[in-house]
Simulated scan of single mutants.
Amino acid sequence: MTTTTLNVKGMTCNHCVQAVEGTLTELPGVERALVDLKANSVAVQFDESVVTIEKMTVAIEDQGYDVEA
């Protein structure tokens, strides 16, 4: 398992937290996702042989948020 932190812009409330965590944990290979609303970030534990950071980024952006490098 690998852990990475993605910077996510546009999250403002608990609904945003649920949307981002939910969409990530639905991806095959994502073990855990934990949003830090104050830091505008999400820590993701994932199997890099199953899912890529690019796929996670697209999933978050599909929810209406911006992922910054």
Rank of each mutant, 00 (worst) to 15 (best):
T2Y: 15
T3H: 15
T3N: 15
T3F: 05
L6F: 08
V8F: 01
K9F: 05
K9R: 13
K9S: 11
M11L: 05
T12N: 12
T12F: 04
C13K: 05
N14F: 05
H15R: 10
H15Q: 13
H15N: 13
V17H: 00
V17M: 08
V17Q: 09
A19D: 04
A19W: 03
V20T: 06
E21R: 04
G22S: 11
G22A: 06
T23W: 02
T23I: 12
L24D: 08
T25F: 10
E26S: 10
E26R: 09
E26Q: 15
L27F: 12
P28E: 13
P28Q: 11
V30A: 05
E31S: 07
R32D: 15
R32M: 11
A33C: 04
A33I: 07
A33E: 07
A33W: 09
L34G: 05
L34W: 02
L34C: 06
V35M: 05
V35L: 05
D36I: 14
L37Y: 04
K38C: 07
K38R: 09
A39P: 06
S41M: 10
S41L: 01
S41I: 03
V42R: 01
V42N: 03
A43Y: 05
Q45C: 09
Q45Y: 08
Q45D: 15
F46D: 02
E48D: 15
S49R: 14
S49A: 15
S49T: 15
V50K: 13
V51L: 06
V51G: 07
T52D: 05
E54I: 06
K55V: 00
T57G: 02
T57F: 03
T57K: 11
T57V: 12
E61G: 01
E61W: 03
Q63T: 10
Y65N: 02
D66M: 13
V67G: 01
E68Y: 08
